[in-house]
């Protein structure tokens, strides 16, 4: 425990174990809260770290939250549609990973995601097995409201509640029973505003946010408040949202990000690309140096298209592009 602790930042520790803040304050170490970016090893000596580690252990036992943090999810290969062995036998995705899943419609992308969500135990049509933190997971991942492995963000999703942004975030924080809801709401709101580029107030009704603002708020909210360690994104539309920053936020909040996308820019932002065909994972590849170099050019093309879109909106002709 203490070994992991020392490399974590104060901010991370307080958000993961809200009770740690009070514990440190009582130990006369209240001022470490002023250095949220610093790691514990810079601020505490070995003895203090050990005491904190033990305290967290005891509290987690008491709260029943021990070992609930998901660090990695492993998929063990099953079989393809024709019954042959799935070529990829094992794929592990860890906190901070961005993994793209590509393949034609009907190739089995949805089933792969469903296998993860259902934490398959060889009991789905693909025969795959899913491990959470290297272990065979229990039923709680399948049926409880608190333990859903996968959160989803998709273009078709809308806010339907008749609430302001603040009320909405409060409601979510309350249902999750998180520590320090005010700080979390502030963080979500700030990030959403940065992502969307067009700021909105906390008292704006969620249903009157623009498309970009809604998407930004959904991403920031999922990053900070969702119970699920894995976030599945099917495309992030281009309009009015900084996609690289969206991924950065999810990573900072220690999510495992899966993207079912054929958008070249998003695909090249991933650390890994899983290629699906005939119901099976065929290969896992990493972006090549050449691909990464192309990303710059792709972004320029993207910006150009956005500019043209903007000109059309303003009633201009596109004789010169």
């Amino acid at each position: 425990m203490s070994q992991n602790l020392e490399s974590l930042t104060v901010e991370t520790v307080f958000s993961r174990w809200p009770f740690a803040q009070q514990h440190l304050a009582e130990a006369g170490l209240a001022d470490i809260a002023d250095k949220p970016e610093a790691t514990l090893s810079e601020l505490l000596d070995a003895g203090q770290l050990e005491i904190l580690g033990n305290f967290i252990s005891v509290m987690e036992d008491f709260l029943g939250t021990k070992d609930e943090k998901v660090h990695e999810v492993t998929i063990l290969g099953g079989r393809a549609k024709d019954g042959s062995d799935e070529p990829v036998r094992e794929l592990t995705v860890s906190v901070g990973d961005v993994v793209c899943i590509v393949g034609p419609t009907g190739s089995g992308k949805s089933r792969l995601l469903a296998d993860i969500e259902w934490v398959a135990r060889g009991d789905t049509p693909t025969g795959r097995h899913v491990r959470v933190n290297g272990e065979v997971p229990g039923d709680k991942w399948r049926f409880s409201s608190e333990h859903k492995l996968v959160a989803q963000l998709s273009q078709n999703m809308n806010f339907v509640m008749d609430l302001s942004v603040e009320e909405f975030l409060n409601l979510h924080a309350e249902s999750r029973q998180v520590g320090d809801p005010e700080e979390k709401i502030k963080r979500i709101w700030n990030w959403a505003n940065e992502l969307a580029g067009e700021p909105f107030a906390l008292d704006t009704p969620v249903t009157s946010l623009s498309g970009g603002q809604s998407r930004a708020l959904m991403i920031a909210d999922t990053a900070v408040l969702s119970a699920s360690p894995v976030v599945l994104i099917d495309e992030i539309e281009n309009a009015g949202i900084d996609r690289q920053q969206a991924l950065d936020i999810l990573i900072r909040e220690e999510k495992i990000v899966l993207m079912a996308t054929h958008d070249p820019i998003l695909a090249l932002m991933g650390d890994k690309r899983v290629i699906i065909k005939s119901g099976a994972m065929q290969k896992v590849i990493e972006p090549s140096e050449k691909e990464k170099a192309n990303l710059t050019e792709l972004r320029a093309m993207d910006e150009k298209l956005m500019g043209l879109r903007h000109r059309l909106r303003m009633g201009e002709r596109l004789d010169e592009i």
Partner: peptide, 17 residues
């Protein structure tokens, strides 16, 4: 669940629970 946000799904599931 395909048409509402992740937050709304989580809040709704908590209410059901």
């Amino acid at each position: 669940g395909d048409i509402v946000s992740q937050a709304e799904r989580e809040v709704f599931a908590a209410r059901v629970h």
